[in-house]
């Protein structure tokens, strides 16, 4: 790729992730769909199949899905400079917005109207989170897998009642997952 083309592509990549990150409410899954619309359907920079694989990588990796999506996209389109540019694009909008809010937060908090609004909204946030948890819970139950149910119950007890470090719980479950997947692979290879 000629260098001016590459520069153009990097700029376009940066502006795209910046735009998507600034106007996407509702988390990682939404932003990934929008990335597909823009880069697969509109710009034709990536094949549909490859995009699906990139989504799988973004979702199975730790960290914010929007950032992970920006990294696979940036790497595919522009190598390491591409990663840098697209991650910056994804991070800058929330960084700027939250910095401004943080700056005014103490003034915010002492305002009667904002205080009342935030108090009421806490009930709404709790409802939104528990509603999402309910959907995820049903998803796990429907898998009809005793080990998964056991993991769910044990993780809750360890986290909520025993106050065991979240990172330790995750590491333990990763270990269980590795052992299970390897055992299952062996069983399938045998049959």
């Amino acid at each position: 790729m000629p260098s001016h083309d590459k520069k153009h592509m990097l700029r376009s990549l940066f502006l795209s992730t910046l735009y998507l990150s600034a106007f996407t409410f509702g988390g990682g899954y939404v932003i990934i769909t929008l990335m597909k619309e823009r880069f697969v359907d509109k710009l034709h920079w990536i094949e549909e199949d490859e995009m699906l694989d990139m989504v799988a990588i973004a979702q199975s990796s730790p960290g914010p899905i929007a950032v992970n999506g920006a990294i696979v996209l940036g790497y595919k389109l522009g190598g390491f400079p591409g990663i840098l540019v697209s991650v910056l694009g994804a991070i800058i909008p929330p960084f700027v917005i939250l910095t401004m809010i943080s700056f005014f937060y103490s003034a915010f908090k002492s305002s009667f109207a904002i205080q009342a609004l935030l108090t009421g909204m806490r009930s709404g946030v709790a409802a939104v989170i528990l509603s999402v948890v309910w959907d995820m819970f049903i998803g796990v139950v429907k898998a009809r897998d005793a080990v998964l149910l056991l993991v769910m119950a044990a993780a809750f007890v360890c986290n909520y009642f025993l106050h065991i470090n979240v990172v330790l719980i995750i590491l333990a479950v990763i270990l269980i997952g590795i052992v299970r997947t390897l055992l299952r692979g062996r069983k399938e290879a045998r049959s």
Partner: peptide, 30 residues
């Protein structure tokens, strides 16, 4: 990525219950 996906499938229920716990710590003081 079979291993990665297998691990993730096992991790999901743990993540659900930890989000639930975090939700409770927002709900109860509310």
């Amino acid at each position: 990525m079979t291993l990665m996906q297998g691990v993730l499938a096992t991790l999901r229920p743990a993540v659900v219950s930890m989000i639930f716990a975090a939700g409770l710590t927002i709900l109860l003081p509310t």
